[in-house]
Design a protein around this nucleic acid. Structure first.
Lengths: 153, 153
DNA sequence: TTAATTAGTACTAAAATAGTCCTCTTTAAC
DNA sequence: GTTAAAGAGGACTATTTTAGTACTAATTAA
């Protein structure tokens, strides 16, 4: 249930690895060696992370990758988004009024609101947190996530 | 990201529908009509829900389905488990010491602990909550989920 | 100019998901 | 008893998603 993809998991390893940089750039080749992942896969991951703005790159000989910002400013939600895109938790949650079942739906977007709550929680978990094994993390609030927006509050 | 499957979403609709029962049983046929889902799909869902113990059934003519217990005693986590089984958030999270990357892993099960936190949150959300559009829901604690079990606490 | 290195895209293979169908069993009603 | 209405279980197919690879172009240090 509710799983992240293998690639997202790998991406976390890759990010954790390049966060150990002493200032030099990591080549995709080196990251592959350090993480024990296949190089084409590492390349693909790094490209996606650059596109998402989590990592910066330099081309050419002696080029490579580095984190775009410190590990405590990269959130778990951003990592997931970089690899999986902003996919909705259910088909119906993606659109407004586009759901075929809307007229008979008795749960009206409950899963979407739960998803929003989970996302909120994941935004408050940083790469730095993911690297610290026993670190307490921010407390998300699913209650609030399930209260629909209202002009009165 | 982190999405539930369409079938789980449908199952929620199905559960919400049969929760409107006035004491009679719902046939799969009737549920299909009411929810606008295809009957084979509804049948499949209901069978899975029976197996998971969320729904009870009676066979034979005049048979059908009913909730096994009140909607506030059926959790979102149980609905997901019924349809998707207890799938792990990452491959590595499923086993103990079975992960190929364990020796070089720098994130050691962070996603699993996040998953545990999310599951905890979903256990505190009931079918009744899912049916109430503007109802506050319990507040999960991702912090606690990320603190590894320890004999000292 | 060359070698190292990223960027972008396309492609293939594998796995998961969704959806359907068929056969068997059970039970109420006639 | 027989029949029709239901659920149980499993097998099967098609679709979609995910994972992984390969190829070509662009960039840059030496």
């Amino acid at each position: 249930m509710l799983r992240i993809s293998k690639l997202t998991d790998y991406a976390t390893l890759v990010l954790a690895q390049i966060s150990t940089s002493d200032g030099r750039l990591f080549s995709a080749h080196q990251v592959a060696i350090d993480t024990h992942l296949a190089q084409p896969t590492v390349s693909k991951l790094l490209k996606a992370l650059v596109r998402a703005g989590l990592v910066v790159s330099e081309r050419g000989a002696q080029g490579g990758y580095a984190l775009a910002r410190p590990p405590d400013e990269i959130s778990a939600a951003q990592i997931i988004d970089a690899l999986e895109g902003p996919v909705a938790i259910t088909t119906c949650s993606s659109g407004h009024g586009l759901c075929d079942f809307e007229s008979v739906c008795r749960v009206g977007g409950a899963w979407q609101r739960i998803n929003a709550g989970i996302r909120q929680a994941l935004m408050e978990v940083s790469l730095a947190d993911l690297q610290r094994r026993a670190q307490p993390l921010p407390r998300p609030n699913l209650r609030e996530a399930l209260i629909p927006p209202s002009v009165f509050q």
